[in-house]
Write a protein that binds this DNA or RNA. Structure first.
Lengths: 256, 256
DNA sequence: TACCAATGCGTCAAAACGACACAATGAAAA
DNA sequence: TTTTCATTGTGTCGTTTTGACGCATTGGTA
């Protein structure tokens, strides 16, 4: 199917394939160069950046829709995603943007489910930056990482969604471990601490952090040390996946 | 408009008034006789109990839809409600129940937006039991309070939604104060503690509870004491609403 | 070979916590 | 009227947790 035909089909008959008035937006966090980053798409012609998003198939669980979108944008599978909020301001409509989009590719459509208001449910994911292959969707030109402290102008309420996701991540940090998808398989204690510091936006005492994080028993210290670093060689750690997942579910009660 | 006409209009043209494929369910908690209760509706003909729910008007914020539903079922206004989760299993459809409902009132409708799948967003409210005037909707026969420990069979996944709401309430209890809508304006320390114990499902040390709850500074001790009680007359307290709301927003970090 | 920055482990005082003691209260019982 | 007694208000005490920081060790680098 040609691009034009595909778009036309989506605008005219997409509502048979997808649920109406509801969409999913994904906040895909990555960690690189000691910076927390988020993956954004550049919407064609709108000249604005947007969260990767999509719709829910008629017979699809919303969690699966979010994972499908993540897979399409990053190539990553089997990533833990968490729904955090539904955004429902009455003016959440991309009608004008979609009409401009259609005008630019010279397709004329009068009525479409895509012109209606959408309630969007936000899903957050934490992924390994290095494993991601950023792939734009048909409505976008590029797909890029942004440092969460230098975000561009964004579509609709997407910046608000992103901020909410970040706050959610921060407030969950005390009860739920973080890092499995964000760090390489082997990492140093400093790597992990800097990840926590980056998410929280403040420094943590190196020695107290080590005491607390080891106390919750989600780490395995390896015999191996990091080579080729100046000064004392730090030990490598890896996550005890069984304990890690247990902690994810039941929660750990520790304060950083 | 007659009942039949109203129903027919709702099934045939409701999708012009409301958003499609998305609904709101309200978990309305009340506190009475030292028991945590929840308000349920008895669905006509389905012979099952259900959460009070409804749909979102085309130009309405979902939060407002939840408040509108709460007002209609309880007569209460200005109550703090919080969205806690969106439920999206593909089999969330009341098609069979709605068709049975229509058959019983002898209305024949082939196609309707009401037969489609709905994603439902759960909202929780904590209300003053004594101020509630339970009012069933057009799809229900009665509206009653149930102790959360003796719930009846419920429609679809409503029991799961309710359980999730309760867990949410419990896990928020450490960070956010509770009680303003659940207790009378003046209450004793024991009243408040029993509320906390009821929500958490476990006992709390009377003296330590008092120490901790006073530490977060949301209470004002009144000069008045409770009259007509056997044994020592306890002081009345009321919430310092300014501090209470501040604590609701920013969170208090205390462990019970 | 000396330097030096980062690591790993430990210390210590202050605060928080759980468990519990005890006097004060005031309606009910004797 | 006096005694009883469940409940309240406040305080104690030993333990644990917390935050802040000291210091010897390590291993590449100057």
């Amino acid at each position: 199917m040609s691009f034009e035909k595909e778009i036309k089909e989506h605008f005219l008959n997409g509502h048979k394939k997808y649920l109406r008035n509801i969409s999913v937006d994904c906040i895909i966090f990555g960690f690189h160069d000691n910076e927390l980053k988020v993956l954004l798409l550049h919407a064609k012609y709108a000249n604005q950046w947007a969260l990767p998003g999509g719709f829910i198939l008629q017979q699809e669980h919303m969690d699966d829709a979010a994972k499908r979108i993540l897979l399409q944008r990053t190539g990553l599978d089997n990533i833990f995603m968490k729904q955090f909020h539904a955004f429902s301001q009455p003016d959440r409509s991309t009608k004008a943007i979609n009409q401009q989009f259609l005008k630019n590719i010279q397709i004329e459509i009068k009525e479409s489910w895509m012109f209606e208001r959408f309630i969007s449910v936000g899903y957050a994911a934490l992924v390994d930056f290095t494993k991601v292959n950023p792939t734009p969707d048909v409505f976008s030109t590029t797909c890029e990482w942004f440092n969460i402290h230098s975000l561009p102008d964004m579509l609709l309420d997407h910046k608000n969604i992103l901020t909410t996701a970040l706050q959610n991540l921060q407030s969950n940090l005390n009860d739920h471990p973080v890092g499995y998808n964000l760090l390489p398989a082997k990492f140093t204690m400093t790597d992990l601490r800097i990840l926590y510091e980056t998410i929280l936006g403040r420094t943590l005492d190196r020695r107290n952090f080590q005491r607390k994080i080891t106390a919750i028993n989600i780490l395995k210290k390896l015999d191996e040390t990091k080579k080729g670093v100046a000064h004392k060689a730090p030990s490598f750690y890896k996550f005890d996946l069984k304990q890690y997942n247990k902690a994810l579910k039941t929660g750990v009660g520790f304060d950083l």
